[in-house]
Design a protein around this nucleic acid. Structure first.
Lengths: 332, 332
DNA sequence: GTGAAAGCGCTAACAC
DNA sequence: GTGTTAGCGCTTTCAC
């Protein structure tokens, strides 16, 4: 049968309170008593029951992370980084995958806020803040990751992409490009909106063609890139920005397959979701916008623990910056 | 404050037992009573507390998954697939990342088996079965994923790689290749051992050079491939097998960077960890061994629930098969 | 068809 | 410096 704290107490000849305090270092216990307790624990092979403990204390030592796509290396890396931080702080990580589906997100939100986790990290796929908000119990610790809402009720950790997008459009313009296209992610996401806004602003400021047909939206899944790309090529684009890592990889591969020479035939600016040397070769003719993915994950971990441990702390909005790295330029 | 089952009972004018049974459909409740209970629940915004429930029942409705590298798309996809199955069955997934570190695995094993999860999926990085085994409480449901041990005490879901490796070596031999090299993963892993064994058997059977210097081991991280590759090129290899997806991608990129033409300059056989069209172009000159990654994840999910729900079921050893796809051949 | 009440294993007042 | 004990919120046996 299961070994409980009472078994240990009995064998050690002390009370359960003493055993508990010994284990948790929560009040003074004499060296001698400690010794006997540890011996009993050892002898019985006792392990405190985590669910009894969390039931009693109300602390689960667990954080939930709702992501749109676990198998996407961008999120995989964020998860890794968050998990690394959290496990170091004695927390566990529960993962829920929404596949960019709002109903799945709703279900996960309901399940995870029902006493399963102490706090929630969410890379939301919702377009509607009110809907999202209605699913979070009052006072429940939440940190938005990567994707945010206009409403700043919740803490967030995100990446600012305005500057690198704006800058790359200007550079393309200076190089004489006139029809610059862009492939964004899902239109409802804050990240996409921000990037498209930067693109629009820069195109206007630089006097480039402003044509809605130059703006295409994918869904960040790999198969969505080629159709967008074809449409942009039909529009006679001389340069294209791709706003998401996986779509960018596919785009580059696809262009090579078509025999398009980079950068002569077409200039590409690409988001890179993670830092890797693996595709350096493929990217060496492509301007890159490199997101601070690991920092995003760690920061998300830090933020959520702050909220869990100090629920009344002011809402924090942390914005990290991407690095813009034109091809040919050396790494810093 | 928190709304409990007693609050609901009081408002509905019934006992807590009735509320519980109504929620859980666990004994007959008259339509009328049901109605009142649901109304009270609605009115109070009651949600049953998950940790009280799991404390009481002993069931956490949660499975742990210990993986060596979350950010690796191979594991990311397995996790996604397992999570998809498990969430459909009402289970949650807790992730722990070991980074191929045995001590981290030990820590995770200890933490997760201490009443946090109902069962454990493990893609172990341990070389020592005894050590692994000693960390699992008697009768605790465990399913080994991808990586197995000689000892068949635990259920497992893995991929058989003997056949595709053997076959590709034979084909290379038939094409006149004489010095076929191989880059394996971590030497201690069952997957690596199996692949190297297949390579050795085939090299011997086909009368190829059997030279230990043709066998190199990486660590499945991307930076480990180039050194291995350089050593093999120095050995005058005319063909190379790469046993892991990420290392294969790097290898192909690296060879292109060096100006090596595939397959004329060097023939490559590569493991592909996941099904993607993204790199079709890069892979079109490379023989591929495609692992059934999604099936691996789903099967792992099924197996662990079987063990959780029927702890006395016989140990199951499920071996899936990889697909061998020489370049130029169409997909089935 | 429903209720009363006994705990699950642990923590943390409170008491001495 | 340590013990006693009251629950945390829920499920489930036993009773009617």
């Amino acid at each position: 049968m299961k070994v409980t704290i009472s078994d240990v107490a009995r064998l050690a000849g002390v009370s359960t309170a003493t055993v508990s305090h010994t284990i948790n270092n929560t009040r003074y216990v004499s060296g001698d008593t400690k010794e006997r307790v540890y011996q009993a624990i050892e002898q019985l092979g006792y392990t405190p029951d985590a669910s009894a403990r969390s039931f009693r204390t109300g602390k689960k030592k667990t954080i939930g992370f709702i992501v749109p796509d676990i198998s996407n290396k961008f999120f995989g890396t964020i998860i890794e980084s968050a998990e690394n931080y959290l496990s170091g702080q004695g927390y566990h990580l529960i993962i829920a995958n929404t596949k960019e589906n709002m109903d799945r997100e709703e279900t996960s939100l309901r399940l995870l806020t029902a006493g399963l986790v102490d706090g929630l990290l969410v890379a939301s796929t919702m377009d509607d803040f009110a809907r999202f908000d209605s699913l979070i119990p009052a006072g429940f610790p939440v940190v938005l990751v990567d994707r945010t809402f206009e409403n700043k009720k919740y803490s967030s950790v995100s990446v600012s992409n305005f500057q690198p997008i704006y800058r790359s459009v200007c550079r393309l313009s200076a190089k004489g490009k006139r029809r610059v296209g862009i492939i964004g992610g899902l239109p409802r996401l804050s990240t996409t909106k921000e990037r498209i806004a930067a693109y629009r602003a820069a195109a206007a400021d630089c006097g480039l063609a402003q044509d809605e047909r130059l703006i295409r939206y994918g869904d960040s899944m790999e198969d969505s890139a080629p159709p967008c790309l074809n449409q942009l090529l039909e529009q006679g684009c001389d340069a294209i920005l791709v706003c998401q890592g996986l779509m960018a990889s596919v785009t580059i591969a696809y262009l090579r397959g078509k025999g398009v020479q980079l950068p002569e035939g077409l200039e590409i600016v690409s988001f890179v979701d993670y830092d890797t040397h693996a595709y350096e070769f493929y990217y060496q003719k492509v301007d890159r916008i490199i997101q601070p993915v690991e920092e995003l994950g760690r920061e998300a971990g830090e933020q959520i623990l702050t909220r869990v441990e100090q629920p009344d702390a002011p809402v924090a909005e942390r914005v990290l910056t991407s690095v813009y790295r034109p091809y040919g330029e050396q790494e810093a």
